[in-house]
Amino acid sequence: MWDNISILTAAPVFNIQLILDGLFIGSTFALAAYGLALVWGVMNVKNLAQGDFVIMGGYVAWWLGKQGIHPLWGLPVSIVVMFVFGWVVYVTIIRRVIDKDMFTSLLATFGLAIVLAQALNLMFGPEVQTAESDFAIRSYFDNSVTVADIKLVAFGLCGVLAVAVVLFMKNSRMGQAIRATAQDARAARVMGIDTDKVYAFTFSLNAAICGAAGALISMIWVIQPFYGIGHSIRSFVIVTAAGFGNLGGVIMAGLGLGVMEQYGGFVLGAEFQQACVVGLLVAVLIYRQLEMRRHRQVVQ
């Protein structure tokens, strides 16, 4: 471990590689986490199938790539496909559990996650897949730092999508309805908002956001039917750390998590890369617990 830290101090240029890789992948984590925050905040449904939606979106882009269509075109297709899929899932499953207690919705989405992973496995096989963009790869500092153009493009697209979602939530009628429902669903109903439609739209929007994140991940990382759980956990860590109403917090936590994974892998070894994510979740929960205890004492 100390050897690895000494590499970073002796040759700081490798920090740049780790930070860049972390930011690039972190941007897709943030995107998926924002979708989770939306569903959690508006509908109070904790979607355990979040990561599987991401992987499914990735398979859409990958499949199109295999048909000879550039996977970047897979991004809009994946958004549309996943939006429709999200609607179907809402109507068939989520609508029935939304007003039940928390465990019912947890179980329903957990079951959905298992079914999705198995379905993808049956359809596309258990092999690891990647969608090839065939973009150039640039190297800097005597090949010490390499940046694949597709990662830059993906980073930019994540930004564009985040801005688009924010503008949509601020300015459109549906966006306003979603925010109103999140504040107080009953009051929103009294004011004439069809909350069932709002829920359906929110859930579909989340699926579409996951689809976008997945399409980008298939181009910059790898996808496999059973990799969903890792992405679900990351989303939960980010949302728990940042809270749901807080887009800025989600973005910072997502990027931070990406960078932390890279440093964890470098310093402690690849086997601890994902352990870092879970470790962070524990740390955040302990911190939150302490904070709440303080708060309770003040109230008393």
Partner: peptide
């Protein structure tokens, strides 16, 4: 370098960065 990769591995770039350094 003697890294162990997790079962659901989708990224070994941090290991490869070490390879570049060493």
């Amino acid at each position: 370098i003697d890294d162990k990769m997790p079962r659901d591995l989708n990224d070994i770039s941090s290991t490869l960065t070490k390879v570049k350094a060493l």
